[in-house]
Nucleic acid binder design. Structure first.
Lengths: 214, 214, 214, 214
DNA sequence: CATGAATGAGCTTTCATTCAT
DNA sequence: GATGAATGAAAGCTCATTCAT
């Protein structure tokens, strides 16, 4: 990309970098417009207008409307999945430690949803409006998150603090289902901060204690 | 369905009945086309073609395309919610009984999803594509299901077999999130029957035992 | 109309008479609907509903929508032209007599417009909406009225009380233009009765005296 | 048009000017298509085809079909009314002068109708086909022309050469009725030039002399 | 590189007309 | 005769995409 290994602070950007930065700008506009109007009712003209560019310009950076949505969704899913993979599965040695770890992951997810509401809209609502293939991408991402979650369970079984005869993948998927149901509700809540706190607590409690009185 | 000839077998249908039956036919075609192409890419012509009618005919029975989606969704939500409300919340007196009841509800839901796959498509995918108002209807239905589920929890607390300091509504919502995540996966599975069985078991286990080894 | 043995009072109507009477009913409904909505926005269903019949029935009596308009217009033009031809052109021997005759014709026209407002709507507005051929029929009718009016002028010239070097047809057309401009305004007036009186006076005055002070 | 190079011959048009010129082109096509087929049977595709453009292009310049008709009619009415308001009402001091003035106005109107036949079609036929509101605009324009005409009469009464006890507004309306009846007939005539000359003469004669022999 | 004028495929919707009952 | 369910031609309109400037 350049001749020197470091990045000079105020260096002129290379052509490829400029292109990437422009794609980012477009994606930022697009995510906002998609979140507000949905994919089909969002027009290229609106996206272009939001970033103060001519709508023809969009086509210099993306082949078509679908490609924008694809780019936007990929970015969003990466952000989302980083939250889960930030915590190393092998770090917990006791149920208590895993409980804390789970609470941290939950809170991190809800913080992300709160700080970037459009990201939630895109993942929860917009992707499904594009076509079945993009819906499938979201489901794939959910599978990856479930797999990541499964790793924590397997680690716990290995270390003896998790019930060994769990159906680990389905249980992980169920946990992801709960957590994302919480994410949806945090996304829509009035007091998002409090809602996030309480959902994190609810999910952890259900996971670790079940609902039966002792 | 009945042992007695209560209904005259081949009676001519009244005008109103004919209209309702025709609306049903259209809804059946529409649900299939919506499920395959999504709401926006489904054309009235396709829906009409699927039932072997002229596309103008559709407009004798529905005011416009949205009205079809509304009818289809309402029907689907009613079906879905009947499953949950079929079991009376006060019927269970012990954790064991409630555990069985929960398993029954889960299996009934998965059976429904399996026997009418398009119904799942409509609720999970199509409704959100129409407009925000119809997305809201689905969320409202989810709230109702969560409220119904909450009733079971409150009954259990009253009778002493459910942990009394649960956040009942959020816990109910989390359970619903799990169950519907299962429904989604059953909907997409190859061996739906087996998948349904295992999801019912997984959900029940997580709810009642938690994940921690004893 | 009766009293004489021409028609038996309560005789059953012949098939042809029944057909004609039904066509009349349809025309009555049609004229009202055309007057309210215009030709294009009037639907066959509305016309049928107004007379309490099924819309398929209309097609037993008229080939198509245009045929209804044609029938309605013909009836209206006949009514309109009778007013003018009711007064015999040779009856006036002096300017004074012709002045009175003109006033009578004007008042009769305005009375007709007042008593059957839809008739005015059809002739002035609806006919032009159908197609150019029906617009032409109205123009033809205007020509006939102008010709009839010309006869009065020719009679006056012959008898010496009308200026002999008039361009009789164009003058007659101009008079018809005035009178129908009055008809349009009577049609739209609040106090139609008074408006008709004053228009009759205005037209007569302009025709016979001109506008120049003596 | 001018002997001096006041305007730079091939100057690039501003965006706003281009837009206005394009609207003009569309209006020109539309007026021709409306005149030939009537408003309802004129399709956007025909209008676009007539100017060699795609039909989508029309919608860059007008919101919808009705807006085109509105623009076309407004342009036509402005042209028409300029003819009448070009002559100052106070200019005539004698009946003879007013007679000449009237003849000039009549001829100017007939010249306009002859040089732009579609303009007559739009005002006389098309406007009434759009909806009642546009019909009302034409009637309003007729009222304005009648009011303008009334001014000439009032000027004549003041100066003593017009009969003082005229019903001035209705008389003016009657005159306008005559003149436009002439316009209609000139519009439809074979030899429009001659027809215009003779109508101007006929109207003036009727107005100033009446029809009675002296 | 950026722009926005131009395009037309393809949709929803209306309603005159047909015809089996 | 009367009916109204069914039909499909035909139109207005939107907007992703192209491309000359």
């Amino acid at each position: 990309m350049s001749g020197k290994p470091a990045k000079k602070p105020a260096r002129r950007l290379s052509a490829a970098e400029l292109t990437e930065s422009r794609r980012g700008e477009i994606a930022d506009s697009a995510i906002a417009v998609f979140a507000e109007h949905g994919y089909r009712d969002a027009s290229i003209a609106q996206i272009a207008a939001k970033m103060g560019a001519g709508h023809g310009t969009i086509y210099r950076y993306f082949d078509n409307k679908r490609a924008i949505a694809e780019y936007v969704l990929r970015r969003a899913l990466i952000r989302l999945m980083q939250v889960v993979t930030d915590e190393p599965p092998e770090a917990s040695d006791t149920a208590e430690q895993y409980r804390d770890q789970t609470a941290r992951i939950g809170r991190a997810l809800y913080d992300l949803i709160i700080s970037e509401p459009d990201l939630g809209s895109v993942v929860f609502f917009v992707a499904g409006q594009v076509d079945s293939e993009m819906g499938a991408q979201v489901r794939l991402a959910f599978d990856l998150v479930a797999s990541a979650t499964e790793k924590y369970l397997l680690n716990g079984i290995e270390k003896g603090y998790i019930e060994p005869d769990l159906d680990t993948f389905r249980t992980a998927s169920a946990i992801v289902g709960m957590i994302f149901e919480g994410a949806r509700r945090v996304h829509l809540a009035d007091d998002q901060r409090a809602e996030g706190e309480q959902w994190a607590a609810t999910v952890v409690k259900l996971m670790f204690d079940g609902i039966v009185a002792k």
